[in-house]
Every structure is written in structure tokens, then in C-alpha cells.
Design a protein around this nucleic acid. Structure first.
Length: 562
RNA sequence: AGACCCGUGGUGUAACGGUAGCACAGCAGAUUUUGGUUCUGUUAGUUGGGGUUCGAAUCCCUGCGGGUCUACCA
């Protein structure tokens, strides 16, 4: 409990309840996804809130699938949702389904009819909508509104037994057609849907609406605090009205409270729009590493811990927000810096030939695995005459702030020798195909010689050509060019796509990478954090770039006159 | 047009009538065999106007701005 640092208005509400006659043991939370899509980082915010509260107060949290619409929901989503929550590191108390309460809900509905608080409306959907009018004027009452309760009761039974076609009638709560809040203008409680349900099969042909089901499910499960996003704010009076009808003395009455959902810059969160990215093949799948889905982030190399830290940092409040991706990136770098082994890999290779190094010699040099973690130990890496270095790490004539290789300048090859650039070989187009350098045999890293201690302009990563493995690196960048692609309502969000959200390059990795397995994470020194993708094959390991290292040189280049 | 919700640096988020703080981003410097990490410093904020008060980001009034609501979706 003591390491709990966040504090927000939700917690404050709970603390205030606890100061009254509400006891800690009665605290209970729930996470209520609809099984109609995959979880994304926005859901992670809600998950961390509810499960976090549950951990803090040592009280149960239920996972409840809100499965009231068989037309949209599927069992596969249930599995995917459970997997993602577990991956995030949370455990629910009970796995619940709104469909488990269908019978109870039905009985409560019958009671409401009996009390004259609900009625069967036989008008068409169009008529009902028209009568509700707009928020700026009063609605009109249905001509079925005052029908005898017995008639409604029978009709309701017939609805259930399948005597009517879809859309023939609905059960409506009798509240107030003049209410400024549209949700109170006799909302629909049940509609006929002749679809088999993924769990109840053909048992039902009428299904409760969200409003009629949600608060009641909370009540059945004795959820104390039902937390949802801001757009349900207008539903709260209805939530409370329904609860007023069924709540019994001595039982916990759930309390709905609303917080702002997460918006992340340079991406989108809407399930429908995410779906469109897949349909239009802008991305490959739900778990494409560019997707803000939990499966996408996982495949990209994000850790659950980093996502949880992120959710902690963004806080909980009621105002609309757009969190900059840089905060997410900070969270993952923070962790990866601590845990990933460092390796060398060259992603845009050019040959570097050490002219004065013996032709057939190979030296095995010691390399530290992780300077942030002494326990990570060291490994041996092969050094030889022909190497690969990054094309951008060389310039024939360099500006003074270029701390890399150029003709006549000295730099260090990481974990190896100090070299001095001596020449280049170009093809007919003037493109450099080989770089030549001289090494100082006395300057070997870690040898302790005076030469090895010399200060040089910079340090480059490299790979021995004869001892390297082929790798494919998938370099991901933000999906959208603008911070809030959904903000502009006139323009299709697809127009803001970043055409370079994925770049695939072929490069060379150091030998030790040969045994890298799916999901394993590395820091490619000076380049970024990478994670082995499941599409790796025997010939070529595929690495997803989780995030780049911070690169103040690239930044300066972009800003500078060039 | 109506009801409800919300306005604190660039972005988030604290401060609950008593010094406007924290994180990310930015900038500058130190350290560094990763232009990484780490460390230090720094720029930058209470939506406008009234009121109440010794004292207001906080309470009241009012303007302005943003969001939600006119599904038999959730």
C-alpha cells in the first residue's frame, strides 16, 4: 500500500465514502469490456484504474463481459481480452457475463411493468425516435404509454417467446418525455433480436439494452464504484433511476462515476477506425506493431510494466486530454534501458576495411552486456579486417560537430580499436562502397595501454563481415503525421496517415544474435530497442524496433541549416 | 436553442482559502568507450471581467472557450 503514489478525484470519492459509514470490505470494482473488439492502450487506462484500486484497497475486481448485443459480439474477443489483461499483470476475482443475469433482468422488467413503470411500445423505431424530438424541445408521449399493465405483461411474454418479428415492439421504461436529458425520454429496455448469442445460444430472442443491464449487473455483483468514461455522464440519471426501482435496503448501491478516456497523440483509438486500417491494409492486423492495441504494443516490444507506469503517469481526471506519445516512449525507454542486453547491429551497412590488420586474423574481444546492470556480465565478439559500419557514420569531409569517422580523423570502434580514416572507394555513381582505415594495434579496448586511454571524437558500433548474421529490421514510426487525427471532423483521418510508418531494412547483426528467440529484447547500440518478431525464419531474424534511442544528433541536424 | 460536464506552462497532472508543485517535452551545461544512460541548471502556467476575504487556481456572479447528449450500440 505504501508504494501507492497516484491520487485522483476517483480515489478521493472513495476516501470520502470511507470516512462515512462505508467500510473498506464493501469496496468492489469491475472492468466491463464489450467482447466486440481487441483491447487498446485506452482500455489499459481503465484496467489500471480499476485493478489498481482493487490492489490498493485489497478488495475484489470482477471482469465482466458486457454481452448484451449478439449481433456484434464474439467469443474470440473474450479470449483475447482475457489474455491481454493477464499479460498486463492483473488478475480478476470473478469472470462474469451480463448474459448470466438475463433471467433476473427479465424478472425485474416484469416487476417494473407491474408497477406501471414500463410498457410495451408497438410503434416503429422511426416513430419512437421522432416522438423523442431533440434535446431543445419536449418529446411526445407514445400512444401505448398508458396501456393496461396486464396487456404489457402479456405482450412482454410473447416478445420473449418469439411471437413477434424483430422490430415489432420494444419494452420502454416510463420516465419523462419532457426531460431535457434524452436518456430519460422513455428509454428502450428490451428489443427483439433473433440472433443466437455466443453464450446463451437460442435461449433468448430479446436482449436488454446497455442502460437497463449495466447498473443492474453492478448491483447483482455488488460493485461499489462503477467507473466509466465521460460519455456516460448523461446516462447517470438513468443509471440511478433504474437502481431506484430495484435497490433493496441493506445492499450496496453502486455508484457510477466518470473519468476522461485516454487519447494518445499521433494515433487513433476508435475500434471502428482501427478496423478500417486493417481493411484498407494500411496495417497488417490487430497486432500490427503500429497499432495502439495491447497485442500490437506487445508485439512491438512494449512491456506490461512500462504500460502500467505510463497509465500511472497520465493520471485520472475529467477533462479531455491528448497525451503526447513521447510520454509512452519515455516509459518504455526507462525500462528497456535497465533490462536489455546491448548488442551491435548495422542497419544501413557499408564496408570498412582495416588496411593494416592481418588478413586472416580473428580476435575475440570482450564486450559488456549492459552497463546499467553489472550482473548482466560480458560476452566475446569477433573482430577482423573487414567490418560493416553504418553508412551515416562516415563523411569524407565532416563538419566540426560530426563526432564520427571521416578521412584523417580518429574514432573508436566500440569494444575494439581506435582507427583513423584513410580513404574510400566509390562506384560509378559516386556512391561510397568501401571505406579504408588504419588501426592502432596498441589501442585495444580494456587493454589499459596509454593508447587505449586516448580521448577520441566518438565511438561507433560495427559488425565483423565474416562473422555476422543477416537480419531484417522493421523500423516503426508514428501512424499519423498530426497529433490528433480524429479532431478534424471535415477531413477523413486516413488523409493524415504517415506514409513512412514502417521501413524495412536488411542489415547485419553480431554473431551472438543467432540464438535470439521470439519476443527477446535487445538494445542495438546507438540505434534503438528491438524485439524479435514471430515472423523470423531460419535464414533471417526479424527485429521490430520498439523505440529509437533518444538522438540529440538527429535532432540538431533537423533543426540546423544543413 | 436546452441540459449536463470541463477550463492550471507546449502536453498531462497536483495544490481542497495560506510559498502554484511534479512528470514528459524544450533549452543549457557536466559526466560518458552508446550523440544512450546519469547528474545539474533552466524556459514556461491558473480562460477574461467582477465580487466575497487580511489572503482566491480554490468560494460566488458573469462572459468566453471546449466537450457530451437527439441509437432498438456500448
Amino acid at each position: 500500500m505504501s508504494d501507492h503514489t497516484f491520487s485522483n478525484f476517483i480515489e478521493e470519492i472513495i476516501e470520502n465514502d470511507l470516512k462515512g459509514d462505508f467500510i473498506r470490505e464493501h469496496l468492489r470494482f469491475r472492468f466491463p469490456p464489450e467482447p466486440n473488439g481487441h483491447l487498446h492502450i485506452g482500455h489499459a487506462k481503465a484496467i489500471c484504474l480499476n485493478f489498481g484500486l482493487s490492489e490498493y484497497y485489497r478488495t475484489p475486481v470482477n471482469l465482466r463481459f458486457d454481452d448484451t448485443n449478439p449481433a456484434k459480439e464474439e467469443q474470440t474477443y473474450v479470449e483475447s481480452i482475457k489474455k491481454d489483461i493477464q499479460w498486463l499483470g492483473f488478475r480478476w476475482n470473478k469472470e462474469c457475463y451480463t448474459s448470466d443475469y438475463f433471467e433476473q433482468l427479465y424478472h425485474w422488467a416484469q416487476e417494473l411493468i407491474q408497477e406501471g413503470k414500463a410498457y410495451i411500445d408497438e410503434q416503429t423505431q422511426e416513430e419512437i425516435i421522432a416522438q423523442r424530438k431533440t434535446p431543445f424541445e419536449s418529446g411526445i408521449e407514445s400512444l401505448y404509454r398508458e396501456r393496461p399493465t396486464q396487456e404489457s405483461l402479456e405482450l412482454f411474454e410473447n416478445m420473449r417467446s418469439g411471437k413477434f418479428e424483430e422490430g415489432y415492439c420494444v419494452l420502454r421504461a416510463k420516465i419523462d418525455m419532457k426531460a431535457p436529458n434524452m436518456n430519460l425520454r422513455d428509454p428502450v429496455m428490451y428489443r427483439i433480436l433473433k440472433k443466437a448469442h455466443q453464450r446463451t445460444g437460442k435461449q433468448w430472442c430479446i436482449y436488454p439494452t446497455y442502460d437497463w443491464a449495466h447498473g443492474q449487473s453492478d448491483y447483482i455483483e455488488q460493485i461499489s464504484h462503477s467507473l466509466c468514461s465521460l460519455e456516460f455522464d448523461n446516462h447517470r440519471p438513468l443509471y440511478d433511476w433504474y437502481l431506484d426501482q430495484i435497490c433493496k435496503q441493506g445492499r450496496i448501491r453502486p455508484k457510477q462515476r466518470e473519468f476522461a478516456r485516454l487519447n494518445l497523440s499521433h494515433t487513433i483509438m476508435s475500434k471502428r477506425k482501427l478496423q478500417r486500417l486493417i481493411q484498407e491494409k494500411t496495417v497488417t492486423a490487430w497486432d500490427d506493431p503500429r497499432m495502439p492495441t495491447l497485442s500490437g504494443l506487445r508485439r512491438r516490444g512494449y512491456t506490461a510494466e512500462a504500460i502500467r507506469n505510463f497509465c500511472q503517469r497520465i493520471g485520472i481526471a475529467k477533462r479531455e486530454n491528448v497525451i503526447e506519445v513521447s510520454l509512452l516512449e519515455f516509459s518504455i525507454r526507462e525500462q528497456l534501458n535497465k533490462i536489455t542486453p546491448r548488442v551491435m547491429a548495422v542497419l544501413d551497412p557499408v564496408k570498412l576495411i582495416i588496411e593494416n590488420y592481418p588478413e586472416s586474423q580473428t580476435e575475440w574481444l570482450e564486450a559488456e552486456n549492459n552497463p546499467e546492470d553489472p550482473k548482466a556480465g560480458a560476452r566475446k565478439i569477433p573482430f577482423s579486417k573487414i567490418l560493416y559500419i553504418e553508412r551515416e557514420d562516415f563523411m569524407e569531409i565532416a563538419p566540426k560537430k560530426f563526432f564520427r569517422l571521416s578521412i584523417g580523423s580518429e574514432i573508436r570502434l566500440k569494444n575494439a580499436y581506435i582507427i583513423k580514416g584513410s580513404g574510400v572507394l566509390k562506384d560509378d555513381d559516386g556512391k561510397i562502397i568501401e571505406i579504408y582505415a588504419q588501426y592502432d594495434p596498441e589501442s585495444r579496448s580494456g587493454s589499459g595501454t596509454e593508447e587505449s586511454l586516448r580521448k577520441v571524437k566518438g565511438t561507433l558500433h560495427w559488425v565483423s563481415a565474416a562473422h555476422s548474421i543477416d537480419i531484417e529490421a522493421r523500423l516503426y514510426d508514428q501512424l499519423f503525421l498530426v497529433p490528433a487525427p480524429e479532431a478534424c471532423k471535415e477531413e477523413d483521418f486516413m488523409n493524415f496517415m504517415n506514409p513512412d510508418s514502417l521501413k524495412i531494412v536488411k542489415g547485419y547483426g553480431e554473431l551472438s544474435l543467432k540464438k535470439a528467440r521470439e519476443g527477446e529484447r535487445f538494445q542495438f547500440q546507438r540505434t534503438g530497442y528491438f524485439c524479435v518478431d514471430r515472423e523470423s525464419s531460419g535464414e533471417r531474424i526479424v527485429f521490430n524496433r520498439t523505440v529509437t534511442l533518444k538522438d540529440s544528433w538527429a535532432k540538431e541536424n533537423k533543426n540546423g541549416p544543413k
